[in-house]
Design a protein around this nucleic acid. Structure first.
Lengths: 333, 333
DNA sequence: TCTTCTCCTGAAAGCGTTTTCACGCGCTCA
DNA sequence: TGAGCGCGTGAAAACGCTTTCAGGAGAAGA
């Protein structure tokens, strides 16, 4: 049970070879004679040895660590996707023998601590989540840190990102509503501080324009992604525009609120008013129906981000990626 | 911009002192003359130096890392709490100058890789999430790894854990139903593989017994935490026992399904049937009402786990903790 | 047979810190 | 005034690994 201190030297001794040889075996150097490889591996297994990361890092300069950085000012906390994304990241990193370092920090203040934690030599790369401002990230990039952003940075930014096709998904959703015959299509938009919120609204607008329908401000209401805010937004919308016969809701949680309001007002879904959500968060029914929604591959988002960062660490220059979304037609539209 | 290689030796040189002195300043050794401290700090700022973790780890033997380990066989992924817990952990660790290492791995197979990643010297401590089997964890504990479990391990286990008061919360919820006059209280239980599922069911049972109501198997249906399964369970329940006038649902997502079914069947909530959930996941309305539910402090759970692990790293022997839950009475019961 | 390669191996340097140890200095206390 | 003390400092060893370098043993070529 005293695994306390088994070093490479120990196993060199019991295997009767030099430390250098052990190191070579560990790193798969093909030049070592097979019988020695055998002896070394046996010794490793026997003594239950595992190499000391710190020592290895010290000489190679590679930490084997990739940081996943979340702006704590952002409430991604309660987002159910957060778990899936981190899972995607963690597993993809793991397969490439990296570990994920989790950092939930305020990014907007000029906090030197986050920069220090990510300075060269501390981690090999980093993945940032949808940020308010890019300053810190740009600084780190200039310092030579391989990094990718999950979500969409400012258009002018040079940052490499990976994102779901929020725009395309919103277009699909809205087109679907138009195609099924809705004449007055409204939207409950999400937080416009976030690129996902902006793009889903823009997709709605674009689909309308493409269908030669004028964009009408009075058909847009804003929520903050919560079910509550969705309900409130839908209420406002209906009060001013009772003629609405279709609504694209920027996420499923708000759609939950929307469905509730529609039921309270006795509006039949989808006959009187059709509803499309975004996220595919609920497998089951919302009110009387199953929600038609846009699905995104959240775990894939994380995995992609991880593989891109690894690519950059290996000296590659991957370009930004937008992952496709797909419309899942169920009962509400 | 060439932060590439600034070492302690560099700043020793520009400050005109020995490396040893710089190290002492870095570690707040009080014995260094104030003017030298001043000189050193100036040099540090000037050169933008930050100490190399690996080198430090190598000599001190402390990594400054705490692993957060999740069984990937478990689908905590989609659990919205996962984000909050990790946030709690990450922030609490950060305050104590530790970093969180995220590991999503299969724990039930005899995977040596997870043990190797957590062997002494790789991390200072670990936090495990509700596990199916304790073998790996016990092994690591025997190897001297400071660790705490989030969730409830087997009763016989020696593991230190932190958990919400699932039992107490369920008792509260059920008592509330009884107190408001429900005569036939059913429950939609969660996954019985998980301690939370078992304890919430047990709490329901205990509250009944305490109120001198016989526990009746036909009033129990099982779901798997999803809204779909909640709806199915409630349907089954009502088919066999139309006399039910109150139901404790083991989580809010299933309660969402339950509410839908009740509405479909035209049952008035809470007059004909009262509903209490668990988790306080939805701020808004479910169907026509706002859900009465049991709230747990998820982020606090993570923070507590982190502080306990730190305590253990510092040589302490914290005992297990059960965090209180509270009943939030709204409209459905 | 003697050189020249090739192949495998070990010795040793070095990665950037912390920490022990010893030293010199200026005091205080007999 | 001399012994002793505490304090601040630097030299150097150590942490566990990788990697360069050089050497020894054969094999191949002359």
């Amino acid at each position: 049970m005293n695994r306390s201190k088994i070093t490479l030297a120990d196993i060199a001794e019991t295997a009767g070879v030099s430390p250098a040889t052990v190191s070579r075996v560990l790193n798969g150097d093909p030049r070592v004679a097979t019988d020695r490889v055998e002896r070394v591996n046996r010794a490793i297994k026997e003594l239950g040895y595992s190499p000391n990361r710190a020592a290895r890092t010290l000489v190679t300069g590679k930490t084997g660590l990739v940081a996943a950085v979340i702006d704590s000012n952002l409430n991604v906390f309660s987002d159910p996707f957060w778990g899936q994304i981190t899972t995607g990241i963690s597993q993809a990193l793991q397969e490439a023998n990296f570990s994920a370092l989790l950092m939930v920090r305020p990014l907007d203040v000029d906090d030197p601590s986050v920069v220090a934690s990510l300075a060269p030599g501390q981690v090999d790369g980093a993945i940032f989540f949808q940020l308010h401002n890019d300053d810190t990230v740009n600084l780190l990039q200039d310092m030579g840190l391989p990094l990718v952003v999950v979500g969409r940075p400012e258009a002018s930014s040079k940052l490499v990102y990976v994102d779901s096709d929020n725009l395309g998904g919103a277009v699909q959703a809205t087109e679907h509503l138009i195609a099924r015959g809705c004449r007055t299509v409204a939207t409950v938009a999400g937080n416009q501080q976030l690129s996902s919120g902006r793009l889903r609204l823009e997709g709605y607008r674009r689909a309308l324009v493409d269908a030669d329908v004028a964009f009408d401000e009075s058909l847009v209401a804003y929520g903050d992604w919560t079910d509550e805010s969705g309900a409130a937004a839908m209420g406002t919308l209906l009060d001013s525009r009772p003629d609405i016969d279709g609504v694209f809701v920027a996420n499923d949680l708000m759609a939950l609120g929307v469905m509730t309001v529609l039921e309270q007002r006795g509006l039949k879904v989808p006959d009187q008013i059709a509803v499309v959500g975004f996220d595919n968060m609920f497998a089951g029914r919302l009110g009387r129906q199953q929600l038609t929604t846009v699905e995104q591959d959240v775990q894939g988002l994380g995995a992609k981000a991880a593989s891109m960062v690894i690519q950059m660490i290996d000296g590659g220059k991957p370009s930004s990626v937008v992952l496709p979304t797909s419309l899942i037609v169920r009962e509400t539209a």
